[in-house]
Each structure stands twice: as structure tokens, then as C-alpha cells.
């Protein structure tokens, strides 16, 4: 996308997706499918919308955008998501 000013300053909807916020992360959420009861609380609680439902009803984390806030891990009723220090 051009960064030149356009008339009305109009920009593309949803275009922040070009900015991969996964690089902000210090702690990485690790999802353990075997413990998951598919309640969906983590998906709803993620401010980055990066917990994605898979075809089998379980979840995967999109690390391109996950900032490592840890809300999903804190809210999960089954301690299914573990936060681990990420070495880069």
C-alpha cells in the first residue's frame, strides 16, 4: 500500500494485518490439545484474535500476531495453555 496521503485519508479495512505483532512477545503460549475441553474462553479472551478454531473444534495459536499477554492462559479453566519464556 502507498503511504502517500489519499483524499479523505481513506485506508484499507483491516490493513493492520501487515504488522506482525508476534515479534513483541517475551512469553509464548503453548496450547496442550489433550487437556482442552473446547470451551472457547481463550478464543474469546484474546485481544489479538489470534486463537483460531480448527476443523476438529480444538484451537491453534497464530504466532504471527500473538503478543504473549497471557490472558488466554490466565482465563483457561483447565490450565491448558502454558506460558514459556521464548528464546529468540
Amino acid at each position: 500500500m502507498s503511504s502517500k496521503l489519499c483524499i479523505g485519508g481513506i485506508v484499507e479495512p483491516g490493513s493492520t494485518v501487515i504488522n506482525k505483532t508476534g515479534s513483541w512477545r517475551t512469553f509464548k503460549p503453548i496450547y496442550q490439545k489433550e487437556k482442552c475441553i473446547k470451551c472457547g474462553i481463550c478464543e474469546l479472551s484474546c485481544p489479538e484474535n489470534c486463537i483460531i478454531k480448527t476443523e476438529d473444534g480444538y484451537y491453534e495459536i497464530d504466532y504471527d500476531y500473538c503478543k504473549g499477554c497471557g490472558i488466554c492462559s490466565n482465563e483457561c479453566p483447565r490450565e491448558t495453555i502454558e506460558m514459556v519464556l521464548e528464546e529468540k
Binding site: P13, G14, T16, V17, I18, W24, P47, N49, I52, D64
Partner: peptide, 15 residues
Amino acid sequence: NKTTELFAPGHRGCA
């Protein structure tokens, strides 16, 4: 980007 939510990721809000 894989989400179907209307508020897109990539925004600059604090973690």
C-alpha cells in the same frame, strides 16, 4: 491472517 473477527490483529495496543 486467519481470524474472521471484524477487529483485525496487527493493531498497536499494549499486550
